[in-house]
């Protein structure tokens, strides 16, 4: 099994704050890796650092063997990395269709792939020509994810997609992640809800204070309640 993404000794500073303090982990190709940890642990910073939005001050990041820590965000994206930020960042003034046209960087929208996406996100078909700013929170999340997968991507970085969403919508997101994985994409997913994490994760990373404090198989952590409590504490349970 090869590693698609590998971080070695990554440090990130935001202004005068030293946020990531030597992050080491690898994400196996074709697997879904969950990144867990309490609020403020540095999960979002990790994804933004990989994406080049906050470049690391030290350390190495390799994507499929290629060093990317010095690369600009658009070049990293063009290597096949899709990003679903915590804020979703849909373009509110653009329609659903226009959001996806921009996301389809390499050409016109692929109808078959759109049908595949509409399969688990029917609301996007329904509101195809509506302004994205008018969508509900869950629909915006669907659009943000759809943007990341409207063309095949090697690696998807997804930040807390279920936050604040109703259970029914979370269900369709889980189905979507399973489908994406079936198509061969590798996913690095930040998730606070351990029930959800358990259902979709193959591997798990736990982060605290800007460092990875646990890495292993999801199944092992799911079976080990004492370890869950030690690593994840109350902050995760509160979200269940």
């Amino acid at each position: 099994m090869t590693d698609l993404l590998k971080l070695s000794g990554v440090h990130t500073n935001i202004g005068r704050y030293h946020i990531l303090q030597g992050v080491n982990f690898a994400v196996a190709e074709g697997k879904t890796t969950m990144l867990l940890g309490r609020n403020g642990a540095g999960k979002t910073t990790t994804l933004r650092t990989i994406m080049g939005l906050w470049p690391p001050s030290r350390g190495q990041i390799a994507l499929a063997g290629q060093r990317i820590e010095q690369m600009a965000t658009p070049d990293i994206a063009q290597l096949g990395v899709g990003y679903v930020p915590e804020s979703m960042a849909v373009f509110a003034d653009l329609t659903v269709k226009e959001n996806l046209i921009l996301a389809a960087r390499d050409g016109p929208l692929d109808t078959a792939r759109l049908e595949w996406i509409f399969g688990f996100f029917p609301a996007l078909r329904k509101f195809w020509l509506s302004r994205a700013g008018l969508l509900s929170g869950g629909q915006k999340q669907m659009l943000s994810i759809a943007r990341a997968i409207v063309e095949p991507r090697k690696l998807l970085l997804i930040d807390e997609p279920t936050k604040g969403l109703a259970p029914a919508i979370i269900g369709s997101l889980i189905e979507c992640f399973a489908e994406i994985k079936r198509r061969g994409a590798t996913i690095l997913l930040v998730e606070q809800n351990f029930h959800v994490a358990q259902m979709i994760g193959d591997a798990v990373l736990v982060m605290d204070n800007g460092m990875i404090v646990h890495r292993g198989e999801m199944a092992a952590l799911a079976d080990d309640t004492p370890m869950q409590e030690r690593l994840l504490g109350l902050s995760l349970e509160a979200h269940q």
Binding site: M51, L53, T73, P74, A77, P85, A89, L102, A103, R105
Partner: peptide, 8 residues
């Protein structure tokens, strides 16, 4: 930022 993250 999001425009850049989409690869432009």
């Amino acid at each position: 930022e999001m425009v850049e993250a989409l690869g432009y």
